[in-house]
Design a binder for these strands. Structure first.
Length: 337
DNA sequence: AACATAGTCAACCGCTGCTCA
DNA sequence: GTGAGCAGCGGTTGACTATGT
């Protein structure tokens, strides 16, 4: 397409994939799994470069790809995530199950971004249709303009934007305790932008941190991962939200949540510590990132996060401080998720 | 009907960062 | 410490399609 091929080899197919190529690739990956993209074409008998195979699989052939239009809720989430993450399409896609980074990127560029641009122009121009340019197409009206208030939504959600730059991780598994109980208010801490590098480090650390682990009232780890299952079969796992089914209903509920008090999202016995799977012991993670997210053992125990308790240990105070950082993040950004 | 224009989206490119020897 | 190999990411392109004139 106008550029020199990335894998400049004679006889390589380029451009649109054929059904046969799709089938070969799909069959190969079903048998051998993903990865080793460079060697895949040769082994599968495809005249494509590895990159192309990877892209085709990830963006089109993967079985969990979600087809169809972006829903209102997904759009809303995209806007929020973009506000938070910027053009980190893979990150955004990681939080929209079934959607690919390419799809979201295209959607943003052709819909949301454009509308934002138009909104900017509309402040200085009159109606665009009056300028002689053709009106929007019918398909566009049907498919890409599901929310007439989108511009306003975008503007509202991008107000006070604070980008977090991170690496992409899928975030679809969270376990929540059965008994959500109130937590003491955590003082807010503002993240300042004086030093971009420091802020980036901070942001990356937070985003790279593991998802919180949740405990039930007996203190059992409720995280639903394979290791836990293997090592704790007697643990009565909660199916409740074991897997986030991020369908429209989920998004509706999520986005309609009252998140005016973000700290409340960490209410209850939220224990974010790493469990030693070999012996079942819980060990606190080392390193700033994890600690910021994970260190504090937030429980109903008054020894934690009780700033009025003069007997609070130094460690507890430190933990509380760490948790404040998370709280600050949540206060600033929790509305996106 | 034919042409022009604009929108969509799959695919490509080049760069970055990670891993490993 | 460093360089090669590789995977992944974001920006960009262009073929295709829908719509307006």
């Amino acid at each position: 397409m106008g550029r020199s091929p990335c894998c400049a080899k004679e006889g390589m197919n380029r451009g649109a994939w054929t059904a046969i190529e799709d089938k070969i690739l799909t069959d190969y990956i079903k048998i051998h799994g993903e990865g080793k993209w460079r060697h895949l074409p040769k082994r599968a008998g495809l005249k494509r470069c590895g990159k192309s195979c990877r892209l085709r699989w990830l963006n089109y052939l993967r079985p969990d790809i979600k087809r169809g239009n972006i829903t209102h809720d997904e759009e809303d989430l995209i806007i929020r995530l973009h506000n938070l993450l910027g053009n980190r399409w893979s990150l955004i896609a990681g939080r929209l199950p079934g959607r690919t980074d390419n799809e979201i990127k295209n959607y943003w560029n052709t819909n949301i971004g454009k509308k934002l641009q138009n909104n900017g122009n509309s402040k200085t121009k009159s109606s665009p249709t009056s300028s002689g340019s053709p009106p929007s197409r019918a398909r566009q009206d049907k498919d890409m303009d599901p929310d007439p208030d989108l511009e306003q939504k975008v503007l509202q959600k991008t107000a006070g934007s604070c980008l977090v730059r991170t690496k992409a991780t899928r975030c679809t598994k969270v376990i929540v305790s059965r008994e959500i109980q109130p937590l003491k208010a955590v003082p807010s801490v503002t993240i300042h932008d004086e030093d971009e590098k420091v802020r980036r480090d901070h942001d990356e650390k937070i985003m790279e941190a593991p998802l919180p682990r949740f405990m039930d009232s007996e203190g059992n780890n409720l995280n639903n991962n394979d290791d836990d299952e293997e090592n704790n079969n007697t643990n009565n796992e909660l199916d409740f939200m074991a897997d986030f089914e991020m369908d429209e209903g989920f998004f509706s509920d999520l986005l309609n949540m009252d998140i005016s008090e973000p700290a409340s999202c960490f209410e209850n016995k939220v224990v974010v510590e790493e469990e030693d799977n070999t012996n079942g012991n819980v060990t606190t993670s080392e390193g700033g990132v994890r600690q910021q997210l994970a260190s504090p053992v937030v429980s109903n125990d008054d020894t934690h996060l009780n700033n009025n308790n003069t007997n609070v240990s130094e460690d507890s105070l430190h933990e509380a401080e760490d948790f404040k950082s998370m709280s600050a993040l949540m206060e600033n950004e929790f509305d996106w998720l």
